[in-house]
C-alpha cells in the first residue's frame, strides 16, 4: 500500500515535472535567444554597422566657411557654433569639409549661395571679389556674418572679432613678463599675404608695449601660399644663432607648434622664449613643460557661438550689432596646469 502511494505521488510529481520542464525550457529558450540577439546587436553597434541615423532635422542651415588654414582654431569655432546652433534649432555645417577638392573661401561662398543656406558665417577677405559675393548673398536673402577677418565694405550683417590692438598689447606684456635684462630683440611671425590690417594693429599693440621697454620688434612675414613654409622659416630663424631673437611671438597655432618643435629639435629650449597662440592640446602641453612661455587665446567657442547668435538675431529681428568683440584669454604655465 505504501509503495503504491509512493508510486502515485511519483506519478503526480512526474506530471508536475513535465509542466515545469516545459515552462522552464520555454523561458530558457526565449532568454538565450534574447541574450544572444542582444549580444549580437551590441556587437554590431560596437562595430558601427547599424547606422544610427538620428537624422534630427533643424529649422535652419548655416554654413561656416573658413578656408582650410589653422584647423585647430576653426574646429573650436565650429564647435561653439554647432553647440549654440543646436540650442536654437539651427544646424551649422562646416561647409565644403567633405569635398574631395580644396576650394577657396570664395568658391565655397559661391557654393553656399547656390545651395541656398539660411545663413553664412565667413572668414572674409578684404578683396573686392569676396565683397561682391557677400553682397550677392545678402541680396539673395542670405545673411552673412564675418568672423575674425572682416569685409568692411560689404553688406555683411555683422562682424565677430577681437580687439586686435589690446590683443597685441597682451602679447607685449607677456614678452615683458618673460624678459630678463639681456632681452633686446623680439621676432613677430606674420602672414605675408594679407589680412594685413589686423596684423598691423596687433603689431602696433605689441610695439606700443615693447618700445617702452627698449626691446626691438622685428617681423618675419611667412609665405602661406607655399606649403610647409612656416616650419622652414622658423627653423631658419632659430638655426641662425647669431641673429637669434630673445623671444618669438606667434600669431597662429601652426606657427606656435612649429616654433616649439624647432626649439625642441634644435635643443634651444630656454634660449628663446615663445609667446604662442591658442590653447590646442599640443600647445597646452608645451606650456606645461615650460617650453612655451604662455599663449594668448581667443575664446573661439564663444566666437562661434556669437556668430550663430548674431545670425539668429538678425533673422528674427532684421537687425544686429555690426561689431561684436570676443574675449581673449591668457594661458600661462600655472593656468595651463589647471
Amino acid at each position: 500500500m505504501i509503495k503504491e502511494k509512493m508510486d502515485r505521488l511519483k506519478d503526480m510529481r512526474g506530471g508536475n515535472l513535465i509542466l515545469i520542464a516545459i515552462f522552464s525550457s520555454i523561458i530558457v529558450a526565449v532568454m538565450i535567444t534574447g541574450l544572444g540577439m542582444a549580444y549580437y546587436q551590441t556587437k554590431i553597434r560596437d562595430m558601427g554597422l547599424v547606422d544610427e541615423q538620428t537624422n534630427k532635422s533643424y529649422a535652419q542651415h548655416y554654413a561656416l566657411i573658413a578656408g582650410d588654414d589653422d584647423d585647430y582654431f576653426w574646429d573650436s569655432v565650429y564647435k561653439g557654433a554647432l553647440e549654440k546652433g543646436k540650442n536654437q534649432d539651427v544646424y551649422v555645417e562646416r561647409f565644403g569639409e567633405n569635398l574631395p577638392l580644396d576650394y577657396s573661401v570664395r568658391e565655397l561662398l559661391k557654393m553656399a549661395i547656390a545651395a541656398r543656406v539660411d545663413g553664412i558665417i565667413l572668414k572674409a577677405g578684404d578683396d573686392s571679389e569676396t565683397t561682391a559675393l557677400i553682397d550677392k548673398a545678402t541680396d539673395a536673402g542670405i545673411p552673412v556674418v564675418t568672423v575674425l577677418q572682416d569685409a568692411p565694405k560689404s553688406k555683411r550683417q555683422s562682424f565677430i572679432g577681437v580687439n586686435h590692438y589690446s590683443f597685441g598689447k597682451k602679447y607685449g606684456k607677456q614678452v615683458l613678463d618673460a624678459a630678463d635684462q639681456s632681452f633686446s630683440k623680439v621676432l613677430v611671425l606674420l602672414d605675408e599675404d594679407g589680412a594685413g590690417k589686423n596684423q598691423n594693429i596687433i603689431l602696433s599693440g605689441i610695439r606700443e608695449v615693447l618700445d617702452g621697454a627698449k626691446i626691438a620688434t622685428e617681423t618675419l612675414a611667412i609665405d602661406r601660399q607655399s606649403a610647409f613654409s612656416s616650419e622652414e622659416a622658423i627653423r631658419e630663424v632659430i638655426v641662425d644663432t647669431e641673429n637669434m631673437p630673445d623671444a618669438i611671438i606667434c600669431l597662429n597655432t601652426v606657427d606656435t607648434v612649429c616654433a616649439y618643435q624647432a626649439l625642441v629639435d634644435l635643443n634651444k629650449v630656454g634660449e628663446v622664449e615663445i609667446i604662442g597662440y591658442y590653447d590646442s592640446d599640443i600647445v597646452l602641453e608645451a606650456v606645461n613643460k615650460g617650453i612655451i612661455h604662455s599663449t594668448i587665446a581667443i575664446n573661439t567657442e564663444q566666437m562661434g557661438s556669437y556668430c550663430v547668435e548674431a545670425l539668429v538675431q538678425y533673422k528674427k529681428t532684421g537687425n544686429v550689432n555690426k561689431n561684436i568683440l570676443v574675449n581673449s584669454q591668457l594661458i600661462t604655465r600655472e593656468e595651463g596646469r589647471r
Binding site: K56, S57, Y58, A59, Q60, V90, Y91, A115, V117, D118
Partner: peptide, 14 residues
C-alpha cells in the same frame, strides 16, 4: 530638403 545632422542628408540637401 531638410537641414539634418547626418552629413549625407545634409549633402543631399545642398
Amino acid at each position: 530638403g531638410a537641414a539634418s545632422e547626418d552629413y549625407a542628408s545634409l549633402m543631399e540637401k545642398n
